[in-house]
């Protein structure tokens, strides 16, 4: 089954409010955009439906879309406002041999996405990594803690507006 057929099935089942966009622009793989608070329903359907059978989550990754507005405040320093974060889901059906990419986009100020950890167990640590690096909060995740950085680390290192701290635990960080 190709990406467009999968998109049509999802659109019929969930409606355009939840399955918002289909983008098949080359050279990347076709991407279906989904409502971040309904992604768990969509994913459960993708896994369990007879025609789809997406039994494998190949990858889940966070992205900073780098679209924040840069504005000068009164002191003349540049700060960023707004912008979005995204999560990409690369799904594969090992039974039916088809693939699809899903995408959800959330505002940086309220980065809340429904967790799919109960649907594919593989996503548990991937979601923790996206939380660790981008601060994306996965609702109903069983154990949303930092996975790579120390527990008491401030900030989310892979965000575009992240600035390196001077010290961590008494150790100087800059070269």
């Amino acid at each position: 089954m190709n990406a467009e057929e999968i998109y049509n099935i999802l659109k019929e089942k969930f409606g355009e409010k939840i399955v918002t966009e289909f983008n098949a622009e080359k050279p990347v793989d076709p991407i279906i955009s989904v409502d971040p608070l309904k992604i768990n329903d969509v994913c459960e359907y993708l896994r369990d439906d007879e025609q789809l059978q997406f039994d494998s989550l190949m990858n889940l990754s966070g992205v900073d879309d780098n679209n924040a507005e840069k504005v000068k405040n009164e002191n003349g320093t540049i700060i960023t406002q707004g912008g979005t974060l995204s999560v990409f889901y690369h799904l594969d059906s090992t039974i039916l041999k088809h693939k699809i990419t899903l995408k959800v986009t959330v505002d940086k100020d309220t980065p809340e996405v429904e967790s799919v950890a109960k649907i594919w167990f593989a996503s548990n640590w991937h979601e923790r990594e996206a939380f660790d690096m981008y601060g994306i909060i996965f609702l109903n995740h069983p154990d949303l803690r930092r996975i790579l950085m120390p527990d008491d680390w401030d900030g989310y290192p892979l965000r575009k507006d992240y600035e390196n701290p001077e010290y961590y635990d008494g150790m100087k960080i800059p070269y």
Binding site: L148, P157, I173
Partner: peptide, 20 residues
């Protein structure tokens, strides 16, 4: 020795073990 290739953008790397 010095942080190596992480010397500039390694937010998570100690730049030389002789610091501790």
């Amino acid at each position: 020795n010095t942080g190596g290739p992480y010397w500039e953008h390694g937010y998570h790397v100690l730049k030389g073990i002789d610091r501790i």
